[in-house]
Design a protein around this nucleic acid. Structure first.
Lengths: 214, 214
DNA sequence: CGTTGTGAAATGATTCACAGCT
DNA sequence: AGCTGTGAATCATTTCACAACG
């Protein structure tokens, strides 16, 4: 039950990027990687990389760098991608279907364990190998299948209601695609807001700025 | 060619949220809104709201607040959503199709002006009312139709190549869905990275933290 | 050598607190 | 009264710089 005094949010974001880089270019056995190499690949300073890794207890070897596969293993553990996560997708519209078809989730240890929709015409159909269930089965199936994470891919006006039910059912994290601020006590939320991203993009373009991740 | 000394990135993100809140709940004629009202809706302090708005030259009225529709109008201008943006979607796979079906873009002034795909089996089909074009027409169509923004919805290994061609064709902004760091000189980029978002979510869950927008 | 780990300094963002306007 | 605009203070994050290590 030990818990660190909370990792800075920007650091968490970068940890994922380090892991991705390690998996893409430093996955050979016994390979080492320096903070400078990682930093250059991501456009940040080497000091930043070392601070981030030190923060989560990952330690390197002076003169050598970090052992790539040890580091990757440690990062997976911290990020939680070494475990399997069971997720429920709520909303089997265009977005929900695209998400389930997005094979990449499986790689990262996310198993789609249930799919729900409010539309009776959609319920019962099969999407990417999953039978779509009626919303009323949400609570029972989440409990029964030990689902820990919900993906909210409903229209904005249904999102809060769906969220309440997910939270009540014991889900511990929600990935929210609806363009509203969800209230979910005791539950982690990450928002993915396409409209917001596009607005940020055109704002940057208008101002003649450059890169900023969202 | 005057350009402000660059708006802080977190401020830009919030400006979109202010606008959304104004459109949702303060759109009646002559309505006013205080920094406190906006702040509460977004979970931030009133001082923060005032600082943000002051930063982009939006001024309120002591004792009254801000005139809601004036403010909304000003924000649209700053964000660039008062203009129409022509966008090209590259990649007509599941993700690309979901994006085009996502009606909301039209509302915000984004017109899908061309759709491209590398797969000959997909080229020529119609998706959400748009004929899918072969990749080789990219340069000519972008120029011909005055396309300013590209949406990269290709697999990771094609993304950089597509980006190079978009940039060469004169596109000024790119919304990137591929899970890699794109290089696009002189062009704004916003990344939307689903894997990253999910990893952040489960990391938060593992650590027992709460909200953080992505 | 090259590279880590880390205090100290610099930069950036948020909150506080209050003068001044309506 | 209620509310804005903003300098000053606080808090967070990044960068610098260098001692210590293999």
């Amino acid at each position: 039950m030990s818990s660190k005094s909370s990792i800075p949010a920007p650091t968490v974001k970068r940890l994922s990027l380090y892991l991705r880089e390690l998996e893409a270019r430093f996955s050979e056995d016994g390979q080492t990687v320096s903070s400078q190499q990682l930093g250059r690949a991501l456009g940040i300073t080497d000091a930043q990389v070392r601070k981030d890794l030190a923060f989560v207890g990952q330690t390197g070897h002076p003169g050598i760098g970090y052992k790539a596969n040890e580091l990757a293993h440690g990062l997976r553990q911290i990020l939680g991608t070494d475990r399997a996560w069971r997720v429920a997708v709520v909303g089997a519209g265009k977005l929900g279907r695209a998400l389930m078809g997005y094979g990449r989730f499986g790689d990262k240890g996310f198993d789609v364990a249930a799919v729900f929709d409010a539309d009776p015409k959609v319920v019962g159909t099969t999407v990417a190998g999953h039978r779509v269930r009626p919303l009323q089965d949400l609570e029972s199936l989440v409990a029964e299948r030990g689902i820990q994470v919900g993906i909210v891919a409903t229209p904005a006006d249904a999102a809060q209601q769906v969220t309440d039910r997910l939270v009540r059912s014991g889900v511990r994290g929600i990935l929210n695609f609806a363009p509203i601020r969800l209230n979910a006590d005791g539950c982690s939320i990450v928002d993915v807001d396409l409209t917001l991203s596009l607005e940020q993009l055109v704002c940057q373009v208008s101002l003649g700025l450059n890169r900023d991740s969202a």
